[in-house]
């Protein structure tokens, strides 16, 4: 019972200002990704777009989804999922690209 109580009291509440700052960052990055798409870099447009998307996703995960303040088990299992996803996409693509 103590465990539950201590967890509840340590539950982190994000302030409105902090959340608004995250939103501002996300909107800014949306502007950047639209802007960058007009610059023709050939193949490199895709890695750049993905890099910006990954940054946006990280912001959403850490703050909106509260992952930064979650317990270790949730953080670790999330990282595990990302590894599975990267393996799934990476290996399949590797196979197709160099066939």
């Amino acid at each position: 019972m103590d465990r539950f109580n201590s967890e509840r009291s340590s539950h982190h509440i994000l302030g409105y200002r902090q959340l608004a700052a995250v939103l501002a960052g996300l909107l800014l990055l949306t502007g950047v990704t639209v802007g960058v798409s007009y610059i023709h870099m050939g193949f490199f447009n895709i890695p750049v777009a993905l890099l910006i998307a990954c940054t946006k996703v990280t912001l959403v995960l850490l703050f909106f989804m509260h992952l930064k303040y979650e317990e270790t088990i949730i953080k670790l299992s999330f990282i595990g999922t990302v590894i599975v996803l990267v393996t799934l996409i990476g290996f399949t693509f590797w196979d197709v690209a160099f066939r």
């Binding site: 798409s37 050939g42 447009n45 993905l50 998307a53 996703v57 959403v60 909106f64 989804m65």
Partner: peptide, 23 residues
């Protein structure tokens, strides 16, 4: 429910550049 809504947002963050902004 909020987590689910954010997930919808996460997926869109990838869908948007990959479909609307490719090359």
């Amino acid at each position: 429910s909020g987590l689910y809504w954010h997930l919808v947002d996460l997926i869109w963050i990838f869908v948007f550049p990959l479909f609307y902004l490719v090359l």
